[in-house]
Structure formats: structure tokens, C-alpha cells
Amino acid sequence: MVNFKLNGLEVAVEKGTTLLEAARFYGIEIPTLCYDAGLSPYGACRLCLVEVGEPGKSRLVTSCTYPAREGLQVRTHSQWVVNTRKLIIELYLATCPSSKTIQDLASRYHVTGVRFRQKHEDCILCGLCIRYCSEQMQAKAIGFINRGEKRRISTPFERKAEECRFCGGCMYICPACQARCQGPEEKEAVCNACLNLSPPCLDRFNDAMCYLDPCVACEQGRKE
């Protein structure tokens, strides 16, 4: 067993457990976009960031790829983490606003505006579909091609893949194409129809004061 501190709490998990798995096991929510319990972790979306290390010497790491280590101090809801998380969601909104998964994240984490140039991509390059196809279907019918800003999902030689088994898994797992959000207007990137509230305690303290979900302050909240 590995003993470490999760939001100040002494916890123990089996060796090899990632911080994300540990946090979820202890009931702490960490949002993810490129993680699926049935697939290998990939570390692409950066949404699952947590703060590790002593205050002052801490850094942000992706919890889905970071194994729990003896004596580690992990904070899943520090100001730094929550603000960075919101920024990342904002970036996803700027990229791919038609995804319901991303719109839901925006509402849940109280992201109400986008300060970046608006695009309308239909893929966030999370790689879930590729991993699904290769790990669950053993098909490897789809994959990334090109590099840098030209990177995208395609099939071998961009023709219909002989390897595809028509399972539909790639579409099922995709956070962008499966759940199209009907909400946002063409110009408005954020929908926020399902707006929840980010914990107001974070305005005053460096850590969330509890891990209630949803946060009970929701009613009175920040909105006014």
C-alpha cells in the first residue's frame, strides 16, 4: 500500500494506483475528457490536473497519468487547480462549443465566458476513439495523421478502413461528436443552461472547504 495525503486526508491505495483513481475511490470529483476507465490513460486533455507537493514547491500534474507515491501531498481543489481547470475548459469552449460534454463541464465549473478567438472544430484530439478502436476492438482502423496544427483523426491512406468492424464505439466514446449540444448560438460559445456554481469558499480560502457535490452554496451563490 502507498500512503499519501489527499486534500489533507491520510489515505492509502494500492501501489500503481493513479491519483485520479485514488481521488475517485475516495469520492472526490476530478473532471476528465480524455480518460476512460477501460482504456489506457493518455494525459492529453489536461483537465484532470491536481496540485502535488509541499505548498510553495508544488506543481500541477495530470492525475490520470500520475501514480500515487508514498508521502505525496495532493490537492485536488486548490485555487490554482480550480482556476487552471476553468481556463482549460474555456479553451475547449473556444475550440469545440458544439460538444454537450464540454458545455456541461462549463456549467458545472462555472465558466461563463470565452476570451479566446472562437473556433468550431469537431474534434479535440483527445484520442479516445483511437484507443477505443485499438484497445477494445483490436482493430486500429483509425489514428492520428500529420503533426502540429494539421494533426487530425483519419484512416490509413484516408480511405475506408478495411480493419473497421463497424462497432460504432469510436462515436459512442467521443466527447465531441456523440453528444451535440443544441444550446449555444453560433456567436455565443457558452450555453450555461445547466449552470451550477463554483464553490464561493474559494474566493476566500486557498482550498475548497468541503467536497460536497453539488456545492450547497449554489442557491445563494455568486450569481447576484
Binding site: K140, G143, F144, I145, R147, P156, F157, E163
Partner: peptide, 12 residues
């Protein structure tokens, strides 16, 4: 995997 070949071939 042909896909992996194609990925690498288009990457470099």
C-alpha cells in the same frame, strides 16, 4: 498496423 504506419509516415 497499417494505421500506425500511416500515422508515422505522415508525422515525419
Amino acid at each position: 498496423s497499417l494505421m500506425e504506419m500511416y500515422s508515422v509516415a505522415t508525422f515525419y
